[in-house]
């Protein structure tokens, strides 16, 4: 088992290098270090000397991939790409272009992101599964078909609408929750209620459909028939037999997103003014802060890969048919 995990982790390294290469090319084509300097030093009065000193200070004056001015291994080593990538692998994200330590900022912003993403994830999982069970219970009835149509409708609405309408009704007209903002601790619950609600509602359509189809696949299996034959009530059958068996594909299916919850939600956070990693990313894109975007891309990829590894592990743990080869 441990050997398997180690093998998976080693397999992740070339992927991370690939990720680095892609983002590096992208962001150095968009934004040469000269551009970054100008954006950072402000619009009013910028001189070439200022730009040069700014670049030298951050080591951005190195060549991109190949350094002709030095000898030996340093020709490859003393380049912007290698230097920047090495630091990333050690999780040293360095300073952002506005002179702030990115690592410290990321740590500080994880909690608000999680405060929204984690409850949204859990509540959505719970609601979607219960609703799906309900639909399975009433399968084939008018209730089932209506709800399925409603689910498709919910899926067909852009997430932006939910946010705009939710803010309008719940905050502006009904005064239930603050319009935007964030606070840590228990008093901050009122800030996250609406984003969580919107997150859950927006995802209900696809979630319920997916879980329902998983449950329906199970319902024709032999063990359900046996249970029914024993004269158990339909509710009992659902909760004691269908649910545990259906949870397996559901859990292994959702494990992959759990680490990515740390990344937060881009749109939700910026609409509600939540100081999480999602709004951090959007701000960085707008400000073209190469260092932050690079760090976030790296972090996002690492978390995704962790999710993949977790999925593999959960398969091997729960599903006896998959062997550790």
């Amino acid at each position: 088992m441990i050997g398997y995990i180690i093998r998976r982790i080693l397999y992740a390294i070339p992927i991370l290098i690939g990720v680095n290469l892609i983002t590096f090319i992208l962001f150095f084509m968009i934004n040469s270090p000269d551009d970054m300097a100008r954006a950072q030093l402000g619009a009013k009065q910028v001189t070439p000397e200022l730009i040069a000193s700014w670049k030298a200070e951050r080591g951005y004056d190195r060549p991109l991939f190949f350094n002709e001015t030095v000898e030996g291994i340093a020709q490859v080593g003393d380049t912007l790409f290698v230097q920047e990538s090495l630091k990333l692998f050690l999780f040293e994200f360095g300073l952002s272009d506005s002179h702030r330590d990115i690592g410290a900022d990321i740590q500080r912003r994880m909690a608000p992101s999680l405060a929204i993403a984690l409850p949204t994830f859990l509540i959505a999982l719970l609601t979607n599964i219960s609703l799906a069970l309900l639909l399975v219970l009433f399968r084939g009835s008018v209730f089932d078909t209506t709800m399925m149509v409603v689910a498709v409708m919910i899926m067909s609405i852009s997430g932006l609408f939910y946010i705009i309408i939710g803010q309008l009704l719940l905050s502006k007209l009904w005064h239930w929750v603050p319009i935007s903002g964030y606070q840590s601790g228990w008093e901050g619950v009122k800030f996250v209620l609406l984003p969580i609600l919107i997150g859950v509602v927006a995802g209900i359509g696809s979630g319920v459909r997916w879980y329902r189809s998983i449950f329906l696949e199970q319902i024709h299996q032999d063990y359900i028939r046996t249970a029914r034959a024993k004269g158990l009530s339909e509710l009992r059958v659902l909760f004691w037999h269908l649910l545990p068996n259906g949870m397996l594909p559901i859990l292994t299916g959702v494990v992959v997103v759990i680490p990515s919850l740390f990344m937060g939600s881009l749109v939700m956070e910026s609409f509600f003014g939540i100081p999480g990693l999602g709004s951090y990313t959007i701000d960085a894109i707008n400000a073209q802060d190469f260092a932050i975007v690079k760090a976030m891309v790296f972090l996002g990829s690492v978390l995704y890969i962790v999710g993949l590894i977790l999925t593999d592990i959960s398969y091997t743990l729960f599903d006896p048919r998959v062997s550790l080869s």
């Binding site: 975007v293 891309v297 990829s301 995704y304």
Partner: peptide
């Protein structure tokens, strides 16, 4: 497999944002 795992592990919005900015240049 390497190619698509690498591409899919980058958060897609970031990748698209980067791509769109490049094309602007």
């Amino acid at each position: 497999q390497y190619l698509y795992t690498t591409l899919s592990s980058i958060p897609s919005v970031l990748l698209i944002a980067g791509g769109v900015l490049v094309m602007g240049v």
